[in-house]
Computed example of a mutant assay.
Amino acid sequence: MFKVRKDLSVNRIATALEPLGSVEVARTRNAKTQYFDTFDWRLFDAGFSVCAGLGIEGSEIHLLDNTNCTTLATISGQLATGFASDFPNSKMRNNIERVIDMRRLLPRLTIFSQRVLFTVRDKEGKGIFGAVLEKSRAQRPKGGRTIALGTFLTLKPVKGYAKAGARAHGMLENDVALTLLDKPLQFDAFEALDIKPGDYSSKLKLQLDPAMTMLDAVRTVHLTLLETMERNEIGTAENIDPEFLHDFRVAIRRTRSALSQLDKGVLSSALITKAKRDFQWISQKTNQMRDLDVYLIDFPSLQAPLPDPYKGYLQPFRNYLEVRNQKESKRVAAMVTGERYRNIRF
Rank of each mutant, 00 (worst) to 15 (best):
P107K: 05
F129A: 07
L133A: 06
S113Q: 14
N66I: 01
S90M: 08
R121W: 07
T74K: 15
T119Y: 10
M102G: 06
V116F: 08
K91L: 12
L64P: 02
F118N: 00
E124I: 00
E60W: 03
K91M: 12
V99N: 01
S76H: 12
R104A: 01
I111E: 04
G82V: 01
G77I: 08
K123R: 09
D65E: 13
K91P: 03
I75N: 07
R137P: 00
L109Y: 03
A73L: 02
L109G: 00
R103H: 14
G58F: 08
E57G: 06
F118S: 03
G55C: 09
R103Y: 10
L133H: 11
T74V: 15
G77A: 08
G55W: 04
S59R: 15
E124A: 12
R121G: 04
T70P: 07
C69M: 14
P88S: 11
N68H: 15
D122F: 05
S90C: 10
N89Y: 03
Q114P: 06
G125M: 12
I61L: 06
R103N: 11
V132T: 09
D86F: 05
R104T: 02
A80K: 13
L79T: 02
L72D: 05
K126C: 08
V132M: 09
S113F: 04
M92S: 06
E60A: 07
S90Y: 09
N66R: 15
T110R: 10
G82R: 01
M102S: 09
M102W: 08
H62R: 14
N89G: 07
R98V: 00
A138F: 05
K135E: 15
V132P: 01
D101A: 13
R98G: 07
T70N: 13
N94L: 10
